[in-house]
Computed example of a mutant assay.
Amino acid sequence: MAIQLAKGQRIDLTKTNPGLTKAIIGLGWDTNKYSGGSAFDLDASAFLANDQGKVQDDLEFVFYNNLKSPTGAVEHTGDNRTGEGDGDDEQIVVDFSLLPAHVTKIGIAVTIHDADARKQNFGQVSNAFVRVVNPENDEEILRYDLGEDFSIETAVVICELYKHGSDWKFNAIGSGFSGGLADLCRNYGLEV
């Protein structure tokens, strides 16, 4: 059975799961029964960062327009433009064995596409979650449900995977940004 985490909790991934070299990061959400005339399009992304929390190469920002990092260590499985249905709406696959040595943190975020123009924010999103699945046996290792703590935010860093010694750990972040994808990119050192 998966471990249920709360905001701010950290848990080991690779030490307590020997042999775990790949992980599926599944993200899901629903939109509240609010209609502002535009459909919601939420997008998952991954920022492959160094010890200072900064992305060294634009190609190490993985999202719907750049589905795979240069080494193939992080891959976005594709954009889901509606979020309809149960289960994961978008997935990011991480192969820890292919990560370059300078990458010690992977920030996983979700943004609302065109949020300002559509007058949308995370206050209109519910049931948002992230889960980590072992692709070898489809076992859910952990799950973090974000709750309803957001109002005007248009981007959320949901979690970070980070290296501690030779092991990888999971940190349930749940930190919102009001400036959308641009704010998020600047946070990780990318020029917008």
Rank of each mutant, 00 (worst) to 15 (best):
G107K: 08
V130I: 14
V132D: 02
V130E: 07
A115K: 07
V103P: 01
G107F: 07
N127Y: 01
V125H: 04
A115Q: 08
Q120T: 07
V132Y: 02
V133H: 08
V130P: 03
N121Y: 09
A117C: 00
T111S: 15
K105S: 11
D114A: 13
G107S: 09
A101H: 12
H102C: 04
G123P: 06
D114E: 14
K119G: 04
G123V: 07
I108L: 14
R118V: 00
A101Y: 13
T111G: 05
N121C: 08
H113G: 03
L99P: 02
I112F: 06
S126L: 07
V110T: 13
A117R: 13
V133I: 15
S126P: 03
I108N: 01
V132K: 07
V110A: 09
Q124T: 00
V110I: 15
F129N: 00
K105I: 10
G107R: 09
P100A: 11
R131Q: 11
I108C: 10
V132H: 05
Q124M: 14
I106S: 06
F122M: 03
A101L: 00
H113N: 15
S126G: 12
D114L: 08
K119W: 05
V110Y: 06
K105E: 12
A101V: 14
S126F: 02
V133W: 02
A101Q: 13
R118H: 11
A101T: 12
R131E: 10
H113F: 15
I108F: 11
I112W: 00
N127K: 14
G107P: 00
N127P: 02
R131V: 05
L99C: 07
P100L: 04
A101R: 13
F129R: 04
